[in-house]
Design a protein around this nucleic acid. Structure first.
Lengths: 141, 141
DNA sequence: ATTGTTGCAAACTATTTGCAAGGCG
DNA sequence: CGCCTTGCAAATAGTTTGCAACAAT
C-alpha cells in the first residue's frame, strides 16, 4: 500500500514527501470519509506544520493518480475516500456521518441508464440519505 | 401550477411575493437545472432590483415546502430542479450541462440498498457523468 | 398595523493561488 | 544543484446574514 503510493507518485512525476504519505496513510486507514479539515485536524498532532493548503493540493494529486475518489454527499465540503471502487454512500441526516454501502450490484441499474441516455457515460455516484443505526436508538428518548 | 405555489406558500405561513413567483416560474419552465447565479442573471432583465440573496432565500423556502429539489452534481455550486420526482441526473464533463435521466426504474436497486444497510433510508440521489451528444460530435474535430 | 420580505453590503466558509523558504531526487 | 513542494497569507467563489426600507396580509 505504501509501496503503491510511493511508486505511483514517482511514476507520474510527483515527489514523494512525508506529508503526502501521511495524508494517504491516514485516509486509507479510516472508513469515515473525512473532508479536508478533518484530515488536517487529525494530522496536526503528528505534523505540527501541516497546512490545509497542502491537504487540498495533495488530494488533487491523489485524485489525479487514481488513489482517492472525491465524494459530494450534498454537504458544503468535499469528502475523500481511499477506496476507489465504485460503491454507493449513505449519509445520516442527524449526525452527518457517511458510510459505505457494501455488496451492491448496480450493473443492471447502470445499464438501464446507459441505454436510456445518449451520453457516453464515464462514471456515476450514488448517495443515499437516512438515519443511521446509532441515531435511530438515540431518537427513542 | 401558479395556484399551487401561491396556496402552498400561504398554507405554510410564507407571503406570496412577485420575486418568489418569478423564481419558481422560471425554474419550472426550464430543464437546465440552473444554479442560483443563472437564475439571478435570467431574472435581472425583468426584475432589475432582484438580488442573489433573494434567490438563495427563496430556494430555501421552496425546498422546505417541497417545490424544488437541490442538486449537488459534484460542482462548486448547487443546482435547483422544479421537478421533485426522484430521478437521476447526468452531467457532461465537457460543457457542464446537467440533464435528467428519464424513465428509469430504480426500485429494485433502492430495495437492495435498503436491505443492505441498517439505516432508515429517506431519500437518494443518483448522478452520472459522461459526454453529452453535442460534445461527442464536437470531439470529432 | 403587524409581521415577513427585499436587497444591499458585509460576513462567512470552503477552496485555490502566489510566493519565499525548504526538501526531494 | 535544479526543480518541485510546503506552508503561510491573501485571494476567490458560493452562500449566508444583519439590517433598514418596504410590502403582503
Amino acid at each position: 500500500m505504501e509501496i503503491c503510493i510511493t511508486s505511483l507518485l514517482r511514476e507520474k512525476g510527483f515527489k514523494v514527501t512525508p506529508q503526502r504519505l501521511a495524508i494517504y496513510k491516514m485516509l486509507a486507514a479510516t472508513k469515515s470519509h473525512p473532508n479536508a479539515e478533518m484530515i488536517f485536524n487529525e494530522l496536526q498532532s503528528m505534523y505540527p506544520t501541516m497546512s490545509l493548503a497542502t491537504v487540498y493540493k495533495t488530494m488533487e494529486i491523489l485524485k489525479e493518480i487514481g488513489l482517492v475518489q472525491v465524494l459530494n454527499a450534498g454537504e458544503d465540503s468535499f469528502r475523500y475516500d481511499a477506496d476507489t471502487s465504485n460503491h454507493p454512500h449513505v449519509r445520516c441526516i442527524e449526525c452527518g456521518q457517511v458510510d459505505d454501502v457494501q455488496n451492491i450490484d448496480s450493473a443492471a441499474f447502470v445499464d438501464q441508464v446507459a441505454q436510456g441516455t445518449k451520453y457516453h457515460l464515464i462514471g456515476q455516484q450514488f448517495y443515499f440519505y437516512g438515519i443511521c443505526p446509532r441515531c435511530q436508538t438515540k431518537e427513542l428518548n
